[in-house]
Nucleic acid binder design. Structure first.
Length: 196
DNA sequence: CACCCGATTATCT
DNA sequence: GATAATCGGGTGT
């Protein structure tokens, strides 16, 4: 099967705009055993280097290095002692670092494997949160830095077109700094948007 | 080296 | 609605 990942130019734009535009796109994971997992991106958040809520705000560190690197690559971090979160590096030339946190997916293909990774019985709660979707897609630090624009183990392809009125904008979840920035985007009414 | 805390989730009440 | 679980990273001594 041949796929057509979104080009690097898609990610070389304003981080907030990319976060919005990633809604409706398809995240594809090819496991080592060739199992294919697919999900539609239904919730995202933007984080930039000039944004106090971003890991990149205090400058480059060993952990945040990918955020300062080339766009279109994965930035994965470990949080709360248990979970991994997936970002895609995205920024224009006006900022040093930026990324889009993938917060929720609507499962499309490979649900059986997702259920196994998540240790649950129903699809209701398998990908409706940033830590849940990485578990369902078997994404860990091993995928750190993966090129999302190449047909490899993890990439994004075109999905469905959304109308402006189908997109909701809100404050980001779980942060204490820069809460005023409305940089969370999700598809209105979608059942897999994270709960709060 | 000690301390603090977090871009979360599951499991209570 | 509230909170425990859990540990790596970042900071300061």
């Amino acid at each position: 099967m041949e796929y057509f990942p979104l080009p690097r130019s898609f990610y070389a734009r304003n981080t907030v705009q990319v976060a919005k535009d990633l809604l409706g796109k398809t995240l594809i994971r090819i496991l080592p055993n060739r199992t294919v997992l697919k999900g539609m991106i239904v919730e995202t958040e933007a984080y930039q280097s000039d944004d106090a809520a971003s890991h990149a705000f205090r400058g480059i560190t060993p952990r945040t290095q990918p955020l300062f690197g080339p766009v279109g690559h994965a930035y994965i971090y470990f949080i709360y002692g248990n979970y991994f979160c997936l970002n895609i590096v995205a920024k224009d030339s006006s900022i040093r670092a930026g990324g889009v946190l993938i917060r929720a997916l609507e499962p499309i293909e490979g649900m059986k494997a997702m259920l196994t990774f998540r240790h649950v019985q129903t699809i209701e709660n398998i990908t409706n949160g940033p830590g849940k979707l990485t578990q369902a897609f078997s994404i860990t630090k091993k995928e750190q830095g993966v090129d999302i624009t190449q047909q490899g183990s993890l990439f994004v392809t075109q999905g469905i077109a959304l109308k402006e009125k189908e997109i909701a904008i809100s404050r980001r979840v779980g942060i204490t700094k820069a809460q005023q920035n409305p940089w969370r985007f999700y598809i209105k009414g979608n059942a897999f948007v994270s709960k709060r």
